[in-house]
Design a protein around this nucleic acid. Sequence first.
DNA 1: CTTCAACCTGACCATACGGTCAGAAAAAGA
DNA 2: TCTTTTTCTGACCGTATGGTCAGGTTGAAG
Lengths: 222, 222
Amino acid sequence: MKDNETGKRTKNGRNAAGSRAEARRATEDAILKAAETVFAEAGFGGATMQLIADMAGLPKANLHYYFETKEALYRRVVERIFNIWLEAADVFDAAAGPAEGIGAYIDAKMEISRRHPNGSKVWASEVMHGAPVIQDYLETTLSEWTEGRATIIRRWIAEGKMADVDPRHLLYMLWATTQHYADFSHQIETLNGGKPLTDAQWDAAKASVKGIVLRGIGVSET
Amino acid sequence: MKDNETGKRTKNGRNAAGSRAEARRATEDAILKAAETVFAEAGFGGATMQLIADMAGLPKANLHYYFETKEALYRRVVERIFNIWLEAADVFDAAAGPAEGIGAYIDAKMEISRRHPNGSKVWASEVMHGAPVIQDYLETTLSEWTEGRATIIRRWIAEGKMADVDPRHLLYMLWATTQHYADFSHQIETLNGGKPLTDAQWDAAKASVKGIVLRGIGVSET
DNA sequence: CTTCAACCTGACCATACGGTCAGAAAAAGA
DNA sequence: TCTTTTTCTGACCGTATGGTCAGGTTGAAG
């Protein structure tokens, strides 16, 4: 490939300014972003390094300079979305009661589905295929997270702040309903006349989910 | 529809139970079942004809005698689960009101998640990757199905039998929550101490989902 | 029995994939 | 400037995959 850009920039023009470390991070980010898209669209088995390289605008061999293997790259993509996923928990912990906590959690997770649909899909795909690369996360971090949140929910129930429902199944319902808008976005889009949800429709979706769930656990919406 | 075989017997009077047509169907079924498992575990891209052949106990070349290509085989697997999926709608239509109809629909779909987890995963995977082979189903059959059920729900709302919720988002919630128990079974299993849900736990899951959803739409459980 | 179509399969093929590597180019350091 | 380190890349390689095919086997029909 030829480089006929102005001399000041680096060859590919991507890392015009900044230190070596910054340039490295920027390239890694570009690769990770492309990989997320390709893995989401084709699955791990269907994705090819060549496709990821093309989408990132790099030669394939360069990918292997930044990420040893396809598995290593995939793992990084999965870890990335898992962290975003976990961060949504913060709103849960800070809440005084279920209306606030669960309502905010639904909002946060719906926002993740909207902003990171590809990451959600990669995560769903990974778990669906038996979590071959993040089984340890499920057994440690996620397990602890779930137990912690279940404890909070049980306390709210004991305090009479919400109906007596099984915390586990409530959490599964929250995950399922919110992730559905990312993982099945194509189906939703098709049923929406082939068009993505508008901002207003996203708000309606959030309101609908919150409305049913909160009423379902005996909490009046705020 | 298959025309009835003449029921003839072989010259030596042997039982004709294993007629040619029956044998063919049995082999096709074995292949489809193996394919469902492999596609569910590895995704379309990760699945190999060799793996499917091994699981079905046939030489690979034999698969191509029954199914022209990998895609054709995959399509048949997807169509199969889609039909099972649609059948669950029957309980919806026969119902007099939401408590009955939606309650029975949840039960039916939870039962599908339990009995056909692999099929559910293949379906989810297909939709997640943009429905490359069943887009037409989404646009025709599923679209009509959804509109029909939405109409029923709107009627129930008009008759004051349930709260005024958006039928679409209610349906998405039903699909999401029930399918979650199939698609994310591995995660649920891990969070359940590494063991599959017992019969009692499945009953609890059903009850929990029905409880929250029905209360959420202002219907007292029956 | 003989015939014939349906069924089955080992061996093979072209392709595409993940990954490697020698060495060029660029940047940093002296 | 010259040297060293990091970054980049075209060309290449071994392997595994989806698919093919010629020829063998089976069993029903006549």
